[in-house]
Simulated scan of single mutants.
Amino acid sequence: MMRTVIIGGTAGIGLEVARHRLARGDEVVLTGRDADRAAAVAATVGDGVTGLALDLNDTHGLADALAGVDTVDRLVVAAIERDQNSVADYDVDRATRLAVLKLVGYTEVVHTLLSRMHSESSVVLFGGRAKDRPYPGSVTVSTVNGGIVGLVNALALEMAPIRVNALHPGIVGDSPFWAEKPPAVLDGYVSRTPTGRLATMQDIVDGVDFLLENRAVNGTNLYLDGGWLVT
């Protein structure tokens, strides 16, 4: 049986990936910051799912948090934290927290689990389209998502033959964050999306599966946004 580890799997896209991988027949390990919540969410997903407590900002504690995971066939690092931070009104603490979580934390998870992977293992990291389509207050988000591109390139080289890729979603219209927005807000984004529809959670899950399973895909940054940059 294949084991999929999902960092940031208690809500949103990470949770949808967990449900999908369990339905595929995988044993699933999902993580969240709170141990009770991680265990409770794992129980709702189904038998064969384990919940672990893990905080990507506690970089020195990640090895202990993942000590019980002995083998890894598929690794998805989907944990995110939203940050509104402009250069004119720059909050160093918030910026540092997000940079550590997304770049140092992601890398330390991979470092910790590397010896438990094998030549056919694969890794998917999450970035985001803010790196290419910044918005007011996205200075840190845009920067760290751009850093994921460099991280993927370096890891794909150093970890060969293990495959490492990244997925960069645009606005995911039915995700918990965006689904709560007023319809007029989403309609504005739809009008600027060539496909005439926003990405869905299922679109993102399908993209994760493609990156995890297609053995010819490596060092790739996959954009799922309906073609934003052509408008």
Rank of each mutant, 00 (worst) to 15 (best):
R3Y: 01
R3H: 11
G9F: 01
T10P: 03
T10N: 10
H20E: 15
R33D: 05
A35R: 15
A35E: 15
A35M: 03
R37C: 05
A39H: 02
L52R: 15
L54A: 12
L54H: 13
L56K: 13
N57P: 08
H60R: 15
A65N: 08
G68K: 06
V69A: 05
D70A: 08
D73G: 14
L75P: 15
V76R: 02
V76N: 05
E81L: 07
V87E: 05
A95K: 02
A99Y: 04
L101M: 11
H111A: 14
L113T: 03
L113V: 06
L114H: 15
R116N: 10
R116P: 15
H118I: 03
H118D: 09
G127P: 09
Y135N: 02
V139K: 04
T140M: 13
S142K: 06
T143N: 00
G147I: 00
I148F: 05
I148T: 10
A154T: 14
A154G: 14
A156L: 02
E158V: 00
P161K: 07
P161G: 09
I162S: 10
R163Y: 00
V164E: 09
A166I: 04
G170D: 05
G173C: 10
K181P: 12
P183I: 00
A184I: 03
S191Q: 12
T193Y: 04
T195A: 13
R197K: 11
A199D: 11
T200N: 10
Q202T: 12
V205R: 13
G207L: 00
L212V: 04
R215L: 01
N218V: 01
N218M: 00
N218F: 00
D225T: 06
D225F: 01
G227M: 03
V230M: 14
T231R: 07
T231H: 13
